[in-house]
């Protein structure tokens, strides 16, 4: 389904691979738009459709968006299991724009990932240094 969803950036120029496989053209190709706004949405109550996404992003994003005090409601659904589409509904208080809320949600989730990555690397390096055989004492 999303083998080509491109989350993994495999473009890597170190061995000059890019020149040989025509990615210099792909750089100019517009990335496929995978975010849609569903009908009857307003700036304070909108539903977004995320193509080729599932519970992985849906639930995580729902959680960080719900952490935003400007948000009255946030929920996600996968309308049909055989369609790779995830819908996200956001309703906000006091005229706050859903776009800002969605952007903040995505940024917060990215920040969270950075923290997890940093802490994971630190914890692993500490552990590896103290337990070279990989087993806890």
């Amino acid at each position: 389904m999303s083998q080509q969803n491109g989350d993994v950036e495999m473009e890597d120029d170190m061995a000059g691979g890019a020149e040989q496989n025509g990615t210099e053209n792909e750089d100019f190709l517009k990335e496929e738009q995978r975010l849609r706004l569903l009908p009857n949405s307003t700036t304070t109550a909108a539903s977004f459709a995320f193509d080729k996404e599932d519970h992985t992003l849906g639930n995580a994003l729902r959680y960080v968006i719900m952490k935003n005090p400007d948000v009255e409601f946030c929920g996600y659904s996968i309308p049909h299991p055989s369609e790779a589409v995830m819908n996200l509904r956001i309703q906000t208080w006091d005229g706050v724009s859903v776009y800002e809320v969605l952007r903040k949600g995505l940024e917060d989730l990215a920040d969270l990932c950075d923290v997890v990555e940093d802490k994971f690397i630190a914890a692993r390096d500490d552990f590896d240094a103290s337990q070279p055989n990989g087993e806890a004492s």
Partner: peptide, 13 residues
């Protein structure tokens, strides 16, 4: 990968 997903949708947004 989760971070890449968020960045991708930030671009799309």
């Amino acid at each position: 990968l989760l971070k890449a997903k968020t960045e991708r949708f930030k671009r799309h947004l």
